[in-house]
Simulated assay, not measured.
Amino acid sequence: MSLSVAVAGASGYAGGELLRLLALHPELEVRTVTAHANAGQPLVSVHPNLRSLASLTFQETTAEVLAGHDVVFLALPHGHSGGIAAQLADDVLVVDAGADHRLEAAADWLQYYGTEHAGTWPYGMPELILADGGRQRRELRAARRIAVPGCNATAVTLAAAPGIASGVIDPTGLVSVLAVGSSGAGRAAKTHLLASELTGSATPYGVGGTHRHIPEIAQNLRNAGAGEVLHSFTPVLVPMSRGILATVTAPLVGDATAEQVRGAWLSAYGDERFVYVLPAGAFPRTADVLGSNSVHIGVGVDEAARRVVMIAAIDNLGKGTAGAAIQSANIALGFDEQLGLPVDGVAP
Rank of each mutant, 00 (worst) to 15 (best):
G181H: 01
A165Q: 13
Y113N: 13
D132P: 06
L18A: 09
P215K: 00
T62D: 02
Y113L: 15
H101L: 00
G281E: 06
G98W: 00
H69N: 03
S182H: 15
F233N: 12
H80V: 09
V30T: 08
I217T: 03
T210C: 14
V72E: 00
A54C: 05
T286P: 00
Y123G: 02
I297P: 10
S196F: 03
Q59G: 12
G345M: 10
P235D: 12
F73H: 02
N38P: 04
G206R: 14
T120K: 10
R141T: 15
L28S: 04
H78Y: 13
P42L: 02
N38F: 06
L230C: 14
G208D: 03
G318E: 02
G345Q: 12
Q59D: 10
A67V: 06
D108H: 13
A195T: 13
G200C: 05
V72I: 07
L3Q: 11
Y269V: 07
A250L: 07
A54P: 09
Q327I: 10
T234W: 13
A347H: 13
T199H: 12
P348I: 14
R141A: 14
G119N: 04
G133N: 07
V168G: 01
V33R: 05
K190G: 06
V44H: 05
G227Q: 10
G270E: 00
V175D: 12
E29C: 11
A268C: 01
R102Q: 07
A304Q: 12
P171D: 09
G291A: 02
A185Y: 13
P342V: 00
A85I: 00
G320A: 04
R262F: 04
A189T: 13
T199R: 14
I217A: 00
L252D: 05
V275E: 05
E303D: 08
A188L: 13
L252M: 05
